[in-house]
Design a binder for these strands. Sequence first.
DNA 1: ACAAGTACTTACTCCAAAGTATGTATCATG
DNA 2: CATGATACATACTTTGGAGTAAGTACTTGT
Lengths: 120, 120
Amino acid sequence: MGIAKESSTIQMNKQFALAQCPVTHLMEKIGSYWKPIILYHLSTGDKRYSELKRAIPAITEKMLIQHLKQLEADHLLIRESKPVVPPFVTYRLSKAGYGLLPVIQAMADWSFKDMDGAFQ
Amino acid sequence: MGIAKESSTIQMNKQFALAQCPVTHLMEKIGSYWKPIILYHLSTGDKRYSELKRAIPAITEKMLIQHLKQLEADHLLIRESKPVVPPFVTYRLSKAGYGLLPVIQAMADWSFKDMDGAFQ
DNA sequence: ACAAGTACTTACTCCAAAGTATGTATCATG
DNA sequence: CATGATACATACTTTGGAGTAAGTACTTGT
């Protein structure tokens, strides 16, 4: 396997990385600051839009709805809206979203251990 | 626990979120595109700087060294340099870094399943 | 003498992600 | 009659994360 001299761009390399590295594949879907946090809050049960907003005070409405849309487009969660007024919209994890729970859980576990000083 | 009206900024909210949400705590440390990928490559064994560079062709040298420094500052990996010439620098996971392996492994597992269509 | 390999550093630029600040439709409530 | 709650949308601005490109110091190989 020779090293390709300089014939490829970063974008082509990214395609290569995608094919080679599984973590890269996941990062393309939840690799942002807010997405795992949103998924964490949905892991404890379905939530309305406003419940998520209150659960994550640091996020702006624009970011929240943007990431919810992206997560929905990536089939990680399902949006359900009842045609009533005031609107009643619920978000819940999809099958693939539930599949992410071990990741989210492992993240939470690590954090609790780290905050307890278990790694010092 | 009343809801504080509008007296706090996003930054203050972020502090709050940090205290409340474990996933947020982790995202502050590895919440970037490249860091989990770097950790994944170190999970299979210690690596020299140039080995990481070749293992992750899509990353630029600047990004690689920048993230390595940050991961070192966050005590997730350990840098060891032998005072020889040419330089010989090795990176390996710290205790906290090893603690992240379940997270990385869960990420990889999910990706393989997702690529196999297990979630469709 | 000059290129190549090692592990970086620094300066400059750029674009997309994120923040700020509004607007919208509908109904209940005071 | 105006405010609040709901679940968004949209325009504008800003920031910082990321890319490009070049340089550094030292030695080995040809």
